[in-house]
Simulated assay, not measured.
Amino acid sequence: MTQRDVDPDANEPRLIDHLIELRGRLLRGAAGLVLALVALLPFANRLYSWLAQPLLEKLPKGSQLIAVEVASPFFAPIKLAFFAALLLSAPWLLYQAWAFVAPGLYQREKKLALPLLVSAVLLFYAGGAFAYFLVLPTVFGFLTKVAPAGVAMMTDINAYLDFVLVIFLAFGASFELPVALVILVLLGWVTPAQLREARGYAVVGIFVLAAVITPPDVVSQLMLAIPMCLLYEAGIIAARLLAPREAADKPAATDDPKRGL
Rank of each mutant, 00 (worst) to 15 (best):
A129Q: 09
E21Y: 05
R23A: 04
C229F: 13
Y232Q: 05
R23N: 02
D9N: 07
A129L: 15
V212Y: 05
G29S: 09
E12Y: 13
M228D: 07
R23S: 06
D217A: 03
V135T: 07
L261F: 14
F163V: 07
R14I: 12
Q221K: 08
L19N: 05
A149K: 13
L169V: 03
P178R: 11
L37S: 11
L65C: 03
L33M: 10
P77S: 07
P137N: 08
L261G: 10
V139P: 00
I183L: 14
F133Q: 15
L80K: 02
N11W: 15
E21V: 11
A252D: 04
R199S: 10
V208H: 03
F75I: 09
A170S: 13
A170N: 02
F43K: 13
A84D: 01
L114K: 04
V182Y: 07
A180L: 15
M223R: 04
S72K: 00
M223T: 08
P178K: 12
L112V: 12
M223Q: 11
A97Q: 02
D17K: 13
L27G: 00
A252H: 01
Y125Q: 09
L224D: 09
G24P: 07
E233F: 06
G24I: 01
I78Y: 03
L186G: 06
P8D: 12
L41E: 04
K58S: 14
F168L: 14
F163L: 13
